[in-house]
C-alpha cells in the first residue's frame, strides 16, 4: 500500500514537472507569435525606424492587455462558479460585463474619461456591483441562485436591459464618442495607453493575489455554504467579498478592453476537467491559461484576414458560444 502511494506520488510529481515545462514553452511560443504576427505580416518590426518602434510598442501593449484581461476574466469566472455553485456562471453570461460596460460608457459619454482615466474602472465597477447584487437577489427570490437556470436567465435578461441602456447612451452621445464606444464595445485589446494599462492592471493583479490567498476557503466552498461555515469559513463576510473582488476584476477588464465574452467559462472549465478543482492550482492556472487564451485569440484576430482586424471579443464569442451550449446540453442530460 505504501509502495503504491509512493509510486503514485512519483508519477504525479513527474506529470506536474512535464506540465510546468510544457506551460512555460507554450507561454514563450504564444508570446513570440503574438509579438511577430500582425496585419503587416510575420516578423519582428524594425526598431531602427520610428514606425517599427511604434508598431512594437503597440504589440507589446496588446500583449500586456491580453494577459491582464484574459487572466482577470478567467479568474473571475472561476471564483463566481465556485461561490455561486453554478458551473455556468461567468461575468459575461451573468450580465456583470454588461453592467460594467454601461458604467464605462457613461464615463466615456460624459467626456470625463480623457481628463480622469481613473474614472473608467471606477464607473465600470460601480454599475457592475449594483448589477451583481440585483441579479443574485432576483435569482434567489426566483428559487435559489445555485440553480443554473435561475441565475443564467436572470443574468441574460438583466444583460439585455443593460444593452438597451447602452444603446440609449450611444443615441445621446456625440459622433466622435459614438465611434470610440462602438469600437471599444466590440472587445479589443488596443487599450490606448500604458497609463490606462497600469490603472486597470494594478487592481487586477492585486485581486488575483488576494483570491489566491483565499484558495483554501474557495476549496471549502465547493462543499456548499453550510459545510464551508463548519470548516471555519466566515461565509457571511467571505462570500460577498469574493463576489466583489471578482466583479472588480471584471470591471477593470471591461474598462480596458470592452466586452469579451466566454473567456471566464472556457478556461476554468477545461482546467477543472483536466486537473480537478483545487483552487491552490486552479486560480494561478486560470490566470496563466486565461491570459494565453486571449492572447492567442487576439493574434488570430489580427492576422487571419489581413488587412482587416477581427476584434478579440468576436473570436471569443465564436468559440465560447458553442462551448457554452455544449455545457448547457451536457448539464441538462
Amino acid at each position: 500500500m505504501l509502495g503504491d502511494d509512493f509510486m503514485q506520488r512519483k508519477i504525479m510529481m513527474t506529470r506536474k514537472r512535464y506540465l510546468l515545462l510544457a506551460a512555460a514553452l507554450i507561454f514563450v511560443a504564444v508570446l513570440a507569435l503574438s509579438l511577430m504576427l500582425g496585419s503587416t505580416g510575420f516578423g519582428l518590426p524594425d526598431i531602427r525606424t520610428g514606425t517599427g518602434r511604434a508598431l512594437l510598442d503597440l504589440r507589446a501593449s496588446r500583449i500586456a492587455a491580453g494577459l491582464l484581461v484574459g487572466a482577470a476574466l478567467s479568474v473571475a469566472g472561476c471564483v463566481l462558479q465556485t461561490v455561486l455553485r453554478n458551473p455556468l456562471a461567468e461575468p459575461y453570461i451573468l450580465g456583470v460585463s454588461s453592467g460594467a460596460s454601461v458604467g464605462t460608457a457613461i464615463v466615456m459619454a460624459s467626456g470625463l474619461a480623457a481628463l480622469y482615466p481613473l474614472l473608467l474602472p471606477l464607473g465600470s465597477f460601480t454599475v457592475a456591483i449594483i448589477t451583481v447584487v440585483l441579479i443574485i437577489s432576483i435569482a434567489q427570490r426566483a428559487g435559489g441562485s445555485h440553480m443554473p437556470q435561475n441565475l443564467i436567465l436572470t443574468g441574460v435578461v438583466t444583460g439585455s436591459v443593460l444593452s438597451s441602456v447602452l444603446m440609449l447612451i450611444i443615441t445621446f452621445a456625440g459622433t466622435h464618442t459614438v465611434r470610440s464606444i462602438t469600437w471599444w464595445l466590440l472587445g479589443n485589446l488596443q487599450c490606448g495607453s500604458w497609463e490606462m494599462l497600469a490603472i486597470c492592471g494594478v487592481p487586477i493583479m492585486l485581486s488575483i493575489l488576494y483570491l489566491t490567498a483565499q484558495a483554501n476557503k474557495l476549496n471549502a466552498l465547493l462543499l456548499g455554504h453550510e459545510n464551508a461555515h463548519n470548516l471555519g469559513v466566515n461565509t457571511a463576510l467571505t462570500i460577498p467579498l469574493l463576489i466583489s473582488v471578482a466583479t472588480l476584476m471584471t470591471a477593470c477588464a471591461v474598462a480596458l478592453s470592452g466586452i469579451i465574452g466566454f473567456a471566464g467559462l472556457i478556461v476554468p472549465h477545461i482546467l477543472r476537467r483536466r486537473f480537478g478543482s483545487n483552487h491552490c492550482f486552479l486560480l494561478p492556472g486560470s490566470a496563466l491559461a486565461g491570459g494565453l487564451f486571449l492572447l492567442l485569440c487576439d493574434t488570430l484576430g489580427r492576422s487571419c484576414l489581413p488587412p482587416h482586424e477581427i476584434p478579440v471579443g468576436v473570436i471569443t464569442a465564436l468559440s465560447g458560444g458553442p462551448f457554452f451550449l455544449y455545457l448547457l446540453t451536457r448539464k441538462q442530460q
Binding site: Q214, K217, N219, L222, G224, L231, N278
Partner: peptide
C-alpha cells in the same frame, strides 16, 4: 454532514485537507 455531494470535484487527499482549512497558511 449527512451526505457529501458526489459532484465534489476534489481528490481524496485534497478533500480531507479541507478539515484543516482553519489552520492552513494563506500562501
Amino acid at each position: 454532514p449527512q451526505e457529501i455531494p458526489s459532484t465534489t470535484p476534489l481528490r481524496g487527499y485534497e478533500f480531507v485537507m479541507l478539515g484543516r482549512t482553519h489552520r492552513l497558511p494563506r500562501f
